[in-house]
Design a protein around this nucleic acid. Sequence first.
RNA 1: CGCGGGGUAGAGCAGUGGCAGCUCGCGAGGCUCAUAAUCUCGAGGUCGUUGGUUCGAAUCCAACCCCCGCAACCA
Length: 461
Amino acid sequence: MGKFFDTTPIYYVNDVPHIGHTYTTVAADIIARFHKLQGDDSYLLTGTDEHGAKISQAAEKHNQTPKEYADTISKEFNEAWDKLNINYSRFIRTTDEDHIKTVREFLQKMYDNDAVDKEPRLYKGLYCVGHEKFMSPEELVDGLCPDHKTAPIEYSEENYYFKLSLFQKQLEELISTDQIKIRPETRKNEILGKLKQGLEDISISRANLEWGIPLPFNPKHSIYVWIDALINYYTFGKEKGIWPTDLHLVGKDILWFHSVIWPAMLLSVGEQPPKEVFAHGFFSIGGQKMSKTIGNVIKPEELIQKYGVDGTRYVLLAAFPFGEDGDFSWELFDKLYNGNLANGLGNLIARVAKLAQDNNISEPKNDFAISEEVSQLIQNYHLNAALTYIWNQIADTDKLINLQKPWTLKGGELETALKELILHIKQIAHNLQPFMPETSEKILKQFAGEVTVQPPLFPRI
RNA sequence: CGCGGGGUAGAGCAGUGGCAGCUCGCGAGGCUCAUAAUCUCGAGGUCGUUGGUUCGAAUCCAACCCCCGCAACCA
């Protein structure tokens, strides 16, 4: 028994929930539920990231204030996770009062500790309006932005800088010794490689941004949205007294922020860095990159409508090795659903329930926990391998039925055979608890006391 | 140019020095408890190319070919 605290990234309200957000969040929920079942004091944090210029622009388009706009999108995320049975401890928003207060205190402390310059640096650069970012002179072709064919504006702005470069040695040490454990291993190597190339100080404020948290030591500046966002983990962790984070689950695109910038920020205020950062892979859609522009984004509602809540949780995690990229297609997910849920798990439950009901067999009493093998796999975040293991248990039980042929047996032999099968099923149901909580509960209920036939768990599609 | 991922059976993938595997699909057979479900057997691969290291290479090394991603909203 111990404490376990894991997080999803907080999602930027510039975008509505899609399959990528869903994947991260379901995985984080499975890990958190697993720890709870093991008796740990388990916390899962998710939420939305709501500040920044992009949000105020999007709000303007919808004729809303930034807060109104953020409220709308944030609610979509929150509702999606409720539908998916995500057992979060808190849904945090960067517009929450306590978060804003914590961010200001955090930044003040960075400032007091000399991790932030006392005076802003003047940043001069070439700003491309199309990109909404500064371009380096090398990126320009004939003085024009190669993508937009426009001349960038010469623009200068005063920014406060975080002295990230001071932490290079310490981070290399912490990461290479797994005190900040980065997984999968290839990602750790990537980060270490990038660290060796040197760290530059980073700007943490914006001068002309209204939709943001003011810098405590100079309210004319707003805090850069990434800095604001990362602190959400600390807002919750500090309040609950459960710091540091045991696991930040992130997409591979934001690993740098979570494994380098965020730990450095924590070190600068004398707090412990996260124990582990795990970067999972991305979905492509039918061989193409997932993109709003292409319009091939899959929404969680579409998945739930087709596969149900637990069906969605299952197919997302069963489809690919956890940590690696995978190519989504409805064909693949349909196959997984029909093959493994309808024909596999669902059918096994149906056939044993019928045999037990017809012969008035009642539940054998026994104590159960998650199988040791499954437990090990989940602890190492081999979620997909854990599911494979459980499905082998299902296949083995099907084989056992065909071997025993209970429909040819009578009396004591029949009872012994069926009770053995029921024990197998209960073990499977327990192993499924973190992955498919509703299904697991349904099965355990169905096989409690007098076993009865129930409607199919997963009708074929 | 750079960085990263990948090329293994019809499809999707696992396998990082020791007899090439899994799932789906396909073919044949069995069972009848079950959601046209389940079980058994089978066919199908010169592991991208070339060269090297080794008793032995899908696996290690070198060169090359091809696909995808990052630099543009996006987990």
